[in-house]
Nucleic acid binder design. Structure first.
Lengths: 163, 163
DNA sequence: GATTTATAATTGCAAATGCATATTATTTTG
DNA sequence: CAAAATAATATGCATTTGCAATTATAAATC
């Protein structure tokens, strides 16, 4: 049932295979596990508020950076553009966001969060904060700060956009 | 377009809101962004091999820990049990895994990876390794090790199972 | 400045997803 | 040890997803 320990040979680096690294040393695996749980834990609360993951993510981003073009919002929120388009349909008809024109480019629709939208997110925030706190339980502030710094570097490394 | 800087007041801790923390200091946000890109980058390669994310994840886990009960595999692979069940249908009919009985509990089906399954994963591995390397580009080994250590603590903190 | 090329957003449609349920087997309880 | 509760897997079904194509606008090219 337990995963095999990799041999202690520490020679050059001939492209290790996953079995050698081990799941529990492979950062993408651990991150997927952690985020899977994080998202699953929140889904419960979101359902109660009539939100889905894409809708919640859009609101969360907009609560920090308002009035984004849909294409930018899709990047920030990590949601496919077509999925986001439909999520926004629902958010707009529930009055949580509003679509507005862009003054400079009439192809663009900018999305603004409404007071109702902020209120909905405020209702969810305690749960998000709770799961967040649980994640970092017993992890010193300094370690968490270093962790976030590494994450910021990683995002810079692999992102395809400037933000 | 840029996100607002939080005020420098460092008093007690009255439950910060997301706007105060800032997206780029909120670990779950950064992790979602990074994993979104990681998974998107791999999807291309997977499609070429007839794999989907759930199928790839199942194979990746099995390449390290073989012969798992489906319910355990679902946890390791971060895939819903019903989704995994159907992914395994396809993997089995393509000969990449095989379903076998559990000697002790006849409710359980154990999944084993086949040679063909390992071969398929081997074809994908260079891409996984490439994206992995890209993520940690210019990040010193020591920092990456510390990062993984923190991830391991986080997983322990939030996981619902013993592994 | 007309034509080609690129970008933003929406929508049609087939496939994938996840919840609830069904089925079979095991464990616990009275 | 029979009955009830729990567990593992599979499946029906409505919803969601994502790719590809569409529409509309802007930018680039000739």
């Amino acid at each position: 049932m337990n995963e095999a320990k990799a041999p202690e040979t520490e020679k050059s680096e001939p492209i290790q295979r996953l079995g050698e690294i081990g799941l529990s040393n492979f950062a993408p695996y651990l991150m997927n596990r952690i985020m899977g749980r994080y998202n699953a834990d929140l889904r419960q609360e979101m359902t109660g508020l009539g939100l889905t993951t894409p809708k919640m993510r859009a609101l969360a981003v907009l609560s920090v950076i308002d009035d984004l073009p849909i294409s930018d919002l899709a990047v920030y929120a990590v949601v496919e553009q077509s999925t986001l388009s439909r999520a926004l349909d629902q958010l707009a008809s529930d009055g949580l966001v509003r679509r507005g024109p862009d003054p400079n480019d009439s192809r663009v629709t900018r999305i603004g969060i409404t007071g109702t939208g902020r209120a909905a997110l405020d209702q969810l925030w305690p749960s998000m904060a709770r799961v967040y706190a649980q994640m970092f339980k017993d992890i010193p502030d300094e370690e968490r700060q270093a962790f976030v710094t590494t994450l910021q570097k990683m995002l810079k490394n692999i992102r395809k956009h400037d933000f």
